[in-house]
Nucleic acid binder design. Structure first.
Lengths: 192, 192, 192, 192
DNA sequence: CTCTAAGCGAGACGGTACGTCCAGTCTTCTT
DNA sequence: AAGAAGACTGGACGTACCGTCTCGCTTAGAG
């Protein structure tokens, strides 16, 4: 009944994930159908349905597959520089058409499927957010930010505006903008 | 060829918008199809395609239809209290299942259709953001915030975290959280 | 809900029936799938399912479509000659690869679907059987066969062996064979 | 490459044949799939494909398995009575839902696969037909039927109408009908 | 009396067709 | 002319089986 992972064909799995990403970046979200993935991967549709709940899950796996397990943020001692680096990298991701397309796709799927949304959050985003939080903790320990700063909220203060601007196309997403957000955030948590 | 708005049947228009919203809140996003809208509204499909580009546009119109043209923010003189009121209202929207469902739906459509995204931003969200910006300007004039604060970014500092948390289901969306964001933001732009 | 025949597209209907027969004779029974019919006819699958219960019904209609409404048997006065002509024609049908293929196909469908079987019997075969019965009645009136001959059984005595031999591939189906069956049958009902 | 019959697992063979028949009588022809047979028999699909060409061959074997090797017709000296007994038995088979279901199934397979058809004819039907022919020969020797009667055709004159009526659902299949066919046939071959 | 090659249960695999659902277009008849 | 109704082509959906293929396990007979 339930498939046995031991028997799973690894090359089919890779082909499916690759096909999904290629379709997404080459032809756009509407072209990403289970049928198209199966055809491009040279795989039966059933093989997809056997291992994934739907195309959202496939895309998630495709993204998660080439992601490092642990994200380590640089800690140069210069908090402002480190955060700028992180946010500029995020801005770059949003600016890259391919990465932006995948993000858009996974966000659509996320919105339509709560369970998938939770997995996306936990497997794709949480590591990044946690890494930033860790960096903030070390800064707090170094007295560079207020001792009572609510670090989770601070993390969202950093990323929230970027996502907001990306989601709403509410202005250009540039390094300057990223720097500005870092500056505002650091001002918000500067030691008294 | 191009339809003549003068001949448009107002009651059909209303029925379509109502049907779209009802389907959305009663049966969820996947149930909102052009066919279902037409059937529930007692309308031919062509009547929908004649006046809208697709279901995204219908949903947008449905939402825009019961929105005030101009949003006026309270200006009690107490900036913190005014902003808290705004953000708490936003949190309440996200918490309400019906409103959240429509927001989710329009966001999906937005992500899949850039042109629609721009209209959503301009017609649904910009007024709100502009109103907050206006309030911030009056606060700046009153010397309650730094003269050089980049107000657009500040607005996004306020709303970004809320959207981020909603989008990512990254924690509870409560009044306390809204208040915390307001406090952080005000700290970021406090006069030196 | 139920489709309105008045709106039916006649050219699609014809294209579907033609495609079904062509596929059958060109590529054989296993090639006759709803998908193949739709593709060859340049028609959506739904259009087939809207008007027919399945491929059996399509094939039946295809066959029935180019069938005369009433079958008139020659009545030369020479019963033996007339019956030989009918049975030789039937043998010829079974010998013709195309006609045999369609007969085989409709028989398969018939066996798998009782309701369809009844329609095949009533629309395709009964007219033929009735015509032969009518000819027998005139022969009886002319005193050429026994007055108490059970005509329905006599009809089956004529056709049964042919179908039997075709179904079971139990020997060659030739004019000689047809003639032999006629002779035996006439001997069975010869006036005393 | 070619399987070695010596190593064949007899209990699997029996389980497969039994499963096929049970599925046929319990759930009808469409339920008889290789997968279903394998599942019910507790057997791998490969084991079926190793020993049979397809489900038609399985059903044939299932039927042939509980059939006597040689069929001996009673020869009471009373030809009419003996033939009536045979045809009444055949009618009874067609009337029995289970037997009729298997006959229907094997007929479908037969129509779709010529090679199988030949085997069905030779292994299932020929013995029966031959037995009747033998009985007719003894009757001919006894002078009960015409010396020049074409016995093969006479056999088909007996069985053909029954099969015809069964295949076409062209009237009730009763003992009376069987008797009528016997009478007609005997009249056809009565000594002059 | 072991070893080895076969048969075996299980079930994943690449495919094909199924019958359903919607999209977006087209047609007909009504208001 | 716009609208209600709905048939049309097209295409993706998720499911069911096909026939082939591997995977370990069991088992019989050749060494």
């Amino acid at each position: 009944m339930t498939p046995q992972p031991a028997r799973r064909n690894e090359s089919s799995r890779r082909a499916i994930l690759t096909a999904a990403l290629e379709l997404l970046t080459e032809s756009g979200y509407p072209a990403v159908t289970i049928e198209a993935i199966a055809a491009r991967a040279g795989v039966g549709k059933q093989t997809i349905y056997r291992w994934w709940r739907g195309k959202g899950a496939v895309i998630l796996d495709a993204l998660a597959d080439d992601l490092p397990d642990v994200i380590e943020l640089p800690d140069t001692g210069d908090l402002r520089a480190d955060l700028r680096a992180v946010l500029r990298a995020t801005v770059a991701e949003f600016a890259d058409p391919k990465l932006s397309a995948t993000t858009r796709a996974i966000t659509i799927e996320t919105l339509a499927d709560e369970e998938l949304g939770n997995q996306v959050r936990d497997r794709l985003l949480r590591p990044q957010l946690t890494a930033v939080r860790t960096r903030l903790e070390s800064a707090r320990a170094a007295g560079q930010i207020r001792a009572d700063a609510p670090l989770d909220q601070v993390v969202e203060l950093l990323f929230g505006p970027l996502y907001h601007r990306w989601l709403l196309r509410n202005g250009p997403l540039t390094d300057t903008y990223a720097d500005g957000i870092v500056d505002l955030t650091l001002a918000a948590v500067a030691p008294r």
